[in-house]
Design a binder for these strands. Structure first.
Lengths: 215, 215
DNA sequence: TAATTTTTATACCAAATGGTAAAAAACTTA
DNA sequence: TAAGTTTTTTACCATTTGGTATAAAAATTA
């Protein structure tokens, strides 16, 4: 029981492959039906395996749910901690921030929806994680915006609520996509819609900031 | 079987009272646990009646769910069809619109959450309603904003995405309140928070519009 | 007061669900 | 190829859940 190094055998490759297939299937179902509305059997069927085999990979539903959430959050934490990019103008930083956040809505609509369901439900699973991981980053980012204000680089806006607005305005393109499809009279939001959305939201935010063009 | 007019007897009064107590209880549970996560027994318990008695008032769960949704939407449709208030400056109209929408988040957080769950889940119940009721109003409001743009009253922004942003930025104070509580380090969002939020969001939008002060 | 209607409680049930137990099958490695 | 390990399948089960059937109790009306 020493050299148990995880060799990339045929099995372990399949395992990884199957695991992520399960996670993606679960993500879709949790997004559409919520936690309670997604049965293990349905998730298994979506991944084309038996329920018992699913349980072999993920011992119980809660574990599976937490994995789906954690996967999504890890991506977010990674992608959204770049407000610290020093040296750029506030406008450049904000534009990049909005672009990144919008890309997450486009690339991970299901993960975004699972996250939304979770938060709306009171974040029973994620509350701790938000406190320990998101809040520190949030506080830092707020300080940065405040420093912009103090230096006169942007107008005297409300930093906390600026972030709430940015998050909401970008997140909505994942969560409420169905509503938009109905209102825009489209079957699906396409790349063009997301580009227009990104442009619109970015401009709103930049204009709201009153960011000075000359750094 | 003729004079079956609904007299306001002691019973019918109780009936109304109990019905709305049930609806409020259901709303809370649907908001927190989603449709599948809310059992009829739990809803009954929350309303302090027996499950069988609940079923006497609402024959099945889907009906109850639809009633909760419809209640919320009727309020929205009513409150959010005032972009037509002619004669006011765009800024005044927008400020009032944002204020009203924000008030809905403050006054009906649970209904808002149930609505959000429903939309995120693909609006299986509400899709038709959105098409028949929300889209016409949306189209009218977009036309109004476009007329503002043509008259040079506001900058050349993207009307559709303007509304998406306003809705998202206001709705988020109901749906994602838990996240904000964590980030702001508060147990509960209070009136003061909502006032600050309303101010911030209104200003963002007005500044984004570039609304001319002089009509 | 008697008849009728409305409300509440008791008993019950079929289907679905999360999960266990155990063994067969497939794969890896010595 | 044989032993050991990992993966998959089959069988099963206790609990929960939405809902039915039925009748007792309470209120209203004739």
């Amino acid at each position: 029981m020493v050299e148990k190094k995880t060799k990339r055998t045929k099995q372990s490759i399949n395992r990884e492959e199957l695991e992520s297939r399960i996670l993606r299937s679960a993500e879709v179902l949790f997004a559409e039906k919520g936690y309670s509305g997604s049965s293990m059997e349905a998730i298994a069927a979506a991944a084309s395996i038996s329920k018992q085999n699913l349980i072999y990979y993920f011992a119980n539903k809660e574990l599976l749910y937490k994995r789906v959430l954690k996967e999504m959050l890890d991506i977010w934490i990674e992608k959204l901690s770049f407000l610290e990019t020093q040296g750029d103008t506030p406008e450049a930083v904000i534009r990049r921030y909005v672009r990144e956040k919008m890309a997450l809505s486009r690339l991970y609509p299901n993960g975004s929806k699972v996250f939304a369901h979770e938060i709306i439900s009171g974040a029973p699973v994620l509350k701790e994680y938000l406190m320990s991981h998101l809040k520190p980053q949030f506080d830092r980012d707020v300080v940065l915006v405040k420093s912009w204000i103090n230096k006169g680089l942007v107008d005297d806006i409300d930093p906390e609520h600026l972030f709430f607005t940015i998050w909401a305005a970008t997140q909505t393109y994942a969560d409420f996509s169905v509503q938009m499809e109905v209102l825009l009279g489209k079957k699906r939001l396409g790349d063009a819609d997301f580009e227009r959305a990104e442009l619109a939201v970015t401009d709103f935010v930049v204009r709201a900031l009153g960011a000075k063009k000359n750094n």
